[in-house]
C-alpha cells in the first residue's frame, strides 16, 4: 500500500518535472526565433517536408470525413424532416471540430512521428554534435525550424482538409442523396459565421505548435540508442494525440 502511494507520488513528480523541462525547452527554442542567425530557407524546407509531405493523407482523410458526415447526417436529419440543414451540419462539424482534430491526428502520425525519429537518430549518429562542431546552433536549425514548420503547416493543412471535406460532403449530399443544391449551399453560407472559421484556425495553430514542441522535445530527450528512439517516437505520437484531444476540449469551451 505504502509502496503503491510512493510509486504514485514518484510518477506524479516525474511527470511534473518533465512538463517543466518541456516548457523550458519550448521557451528556449522559440526564443531563438528572435535571435540571429536567421534560419530563412530552412523554415521553408521544413514546411515543405512536414506540410507537403502530409498533403495526400490529409486530402484522403478530409474527403472521407466529409462524405461520411454527409451520409450519416442525412439519415439522421431526414428522420425529423430537416435534411435542408445538412449543409450547415456538415460544414459546422468539419470547420469547428473534425477538421482541426482529425487533421492534427493524421499530422501527428505522418509528420510528428518522423520528427521525433529523425531527431533521435540524428542524436544517435552524432549528427547533432556535428552541427554544433560546425558552429551551427542545432537547436535553432533543427528544433526551431520544425516547431515553426508544424505551427505554419497545420493551419494550412486544416484549411485544405475543410475545403476537401466540404466539397466531398456536397457531392454526397446533393448528387447522391438528392438534397437541393441551392438549399445546401444557401443554408451553409447562412449558418457559418466568421467565428466558426476562427475557432477552427486558432485550434489548428495551437495543435501545430503543440505537435511541434512535443515531437522535437521527445526526440531531443530520447535515450540515444535504437530502442530509446523507438520508445520516444511511440510516446510522442501517443502524447500528441491525447494532448490534441484535451486541448481541443479546452479551446472549444472558449469558443462556444
Amino acid at each position: 500500500m505504502i509502496t503503491a502511494i510512493g510509486q504514485l507520488g514518484r510518477t506524479v513528480i516525474t511527470g511534473i518535472e518533465k512538463l517543466g523541462d518541456a516548457t523550458l525547452f519550448a521557451l528556449d527554442t522559440l526564443r531563438l526565433l528572435f535571435a540571429p542567425p536567421w534560419q530563412g530557407k530552412h523554415f521553408v524546407m521544413q514546411i515543405y517536408a512536414v506540410g507537403v509531405g502530409s498533403l495526400i493523407i490529409i486530402i484522403i482523410t478530409g474527403a472521407f470525413t466529409g462524405m461520411v458526415l454527409s451520409l450519416q447526417g442525412y439519415h439522421m436529419l431526414v428522420k425529423v424532416g430537416t435534411e435542408a440543414l445538412l449543409g450547415p451540419a456538415v460544414a459546422l462539424s468539419l470547420i469547428r471540430e473534425l477538421g482541426p482534430v482529425l487533421a492534427a491526428l493524421m499530422f501527428v502520425g505522418r509528420a510528428g512521428s518522423s520528427i521525433t525519429a529523425e531527431i533521435g537518430i540524428m542524436r544517435v549518429t552524432e549528427q547533432m554534435d556535428a552541427l554544433e562542431m560546425m558552429a551551427v546552433n542545432s537547436q535553432a536549425r533543427v528544433m526551431l525550424t520544425r516547431v515553426i514548420a508544424c505551427a505554419v503547416s497545420l493551419p494550412l493543412l486544416v484549411a485544405i482538409f475543410d475545403v476537401v471535406g466540404l466539397f466531398a460532403g456536397y457531392v454526397i449530399g446533393v448528387d447522391m442523396l438528392g438534397v437541393n443544391s441551392g438549399v445546401y449551399i444557401g443554408e451553409t453560407v447562412d449558418k457559418i459565421t466568421l467565428s466558426d472559421i476562427e475557432a477552427g484556425l486558432v485550434k489548428s495553430l495551437y495543435f501545430g505548435l503543440l505537435v511541434g514542441v512535443i515531437t522535437t522535445y521527445m526526440g531531443q530527450r530520447a535515450t540515444a540508442t535504437t530502442e530509446g528512439v523507438a520508445k520516444a517516437t511511440t510516446q510522442a505520437v501517443m502524447l500528441c494525440s491525447v494532448m490534441v484531444l484535451i486541448l481541443d476540449y479546452i479551446i472549444t469551451s472558449f469558443y462556444l
Binding site: 537518430i121 540524428m122 549518429t125 552524432e126 549528427q127 554534435d129 556535428a130 552541427l131 562542431m133 558552429a135
Partner: peptide, 23 residues
C-alpha cells in the same frame, strides 16, 4: 559565451566515430 564558442569552433574540425555525415 555560446556565441564566442561558435566563433572558436570555426577554427576547429572534428571527425566523429560514426562519421556523423548529414543523412
Amino acid at each position: 559565451s555560446r556565441k564566442r564558442l561558435y566563433e572558436l569552433r570555426l577554427k576547429v574540425g572534428m571527425l566523429f566515430q560514426y562519421s556523423a555525415l548529414l543523412n
